[in-house]
């Protein structure tokens, strides 16, 4: 342990952030969780402690089941879709291509636009009219000879359609992550593999892809938490309709329409917990992995290496 004089200034420098996070994140989370454990089901009652009753009761509501199912469908389609598309785009661009800058700009720009702005277009595009009344994408599909469907108004797979605007918005970002990952693979490594007799495909299979695993994981985490909290997109495209209900929208309705703070807090807690279930292990894992590779002797600042080397080492271990 180093002397306090060396680390104290650093601690002081981050103190404002610690206080802010303490109040705004953990204070609010605590407030929320405490509220979720009361029976404050309207604005005026005091709210008695009821333990986890609200967390159990909510499973009796058909709407809750629906919104959980919707989230699962949305998450699977959105996360897989954005990962695959982002990966594909990065893969196609990896070796450099004419107009790469333009392509990158086109794929990235949806990230720049809010759904308050594009919701109106997506509503048009995903209009459910078919046949003679087809407009938007259905009209386009009609011209192209593709099958038409109800988009987000489809009773079973509506949420898969709802994932399209989200994929549109985030796959460019995933592309950028993967492209950075691809290009972070040192050429010498590829060359070495080729010398060892690997085919071009073998180079990808055994050298490049393993090194992309950390990038894939962080993309997965970022996409996953966006997906579990999704709100703006749904409200912008469909409003508060049951057919596209998700927990975040349900919570909004519970708090502001049903005037049921405890129920809203319960749903919020479930969202936080669902995010936490896969984020906390990831955070702990990544901090630990880093500690093992980056700082062999704890407390020392020495022996730290560049990120690509570090990733490589992680890969070799795993």
């Amino acid at each position: 342990m180093r002397r306090a004089r060396t680390w104290l200034p650093g601690l002081l420098l981050v103190t404002p952030s610690i206080v802010a996070i303490g109040v705004f994140v953990y204070g609010m989370l605590g407030w929320n969780f405490q509220l979720a454990m009361t029976d404050k089901h309207d604005q005026v009652s005091e709210g008695q402690f009821v333990g986890l009753q609200n967390f159990i009761d909510i499973w009796d509501q058909p709407r809750w089941h629906l919104s959980v199912n919707h989230t699962i469908v949305f998450t699977v389609v959105f996360v897989l879709g954005a990962l695959l598309l982002g990966w594909l785009l990065a893969f196609l661009m990896e070796k450099g291509i004419k107009g790469e800058g333009t392509f990158r700009a086109i794929y990235l720009f949806p990230m720049a636009i809010s759904f308050v702005a594009t919701g109106i277009v997506w509503r048009w595009l995903m209009n459910s009219g078919t046949g003679e009344r087809a407009v938007g994408l259905n009209r386009l599909f009609d011209w192209l000879g593709l099958p038409q469907w109800q988009w987000f108004r489809d009773q079973d797979w509506g949420m898969a359609a709802m994932a399209l605007p989200a994929i549109w918005q985030m796959s460019g970002y995933v592309m950028a992550l993967f492209l950075a990952g691809f290009r972070g693979v040192p050429e010498e490594l590829r060359e070495a593999a080729r010398v060892d007799g690997c085919t071009e495909w073998g180079v990808y299979r055994h050298v490049v892809l393993p090194m992309l695993r950390p990038v894939t994981l962080s993309a997965l985490i970022i996409l996953g938490h966006i997906s579990l909290k999704v709100f703006d997109l749904i409200v912008a495209v469909s409003g508060k309709q049951i057919i596209t209900d998700v927990p975040a929208v349900f919570m909004w309705v519970a708090v502001f329409d049903s005037n049921d703070p405890a129920k809203g807090a319960t749903i919020a807690s479930y969202i936080v917990v669902s995010v936490a279930i896969f984020v906390i292990p990831y955070l702990i894992w990544s901090v630990r992995a880093e500690r093992r590779t980056v700082r062999p002797e704890s407390g020392s600042l020495r022996g730290q290496r560049g990120p690509s080397e570090r990733d490589h080492e992680q890969e070799r271990r795993s």
Binding site: L8, K229, I280, L301
Partner: peptide, 30 residues
């Protein structure tokens, strides 16, 4: 500070910070 001027518990603090990314804001609005 968290990468170059660590203090005891810096990693734990960093993890606690990161978790802040994941709270749903509608829930804390009131």
């Amino acid at each position: 500070v968290l990468s170059k001027w660590r203090f005891p518990g810096a990693d734990v603090l960093f993890t606690l910070f990161l978790f802040g990314m994941f709270i749903p804001y509608q829930g804390v609005m009131i």
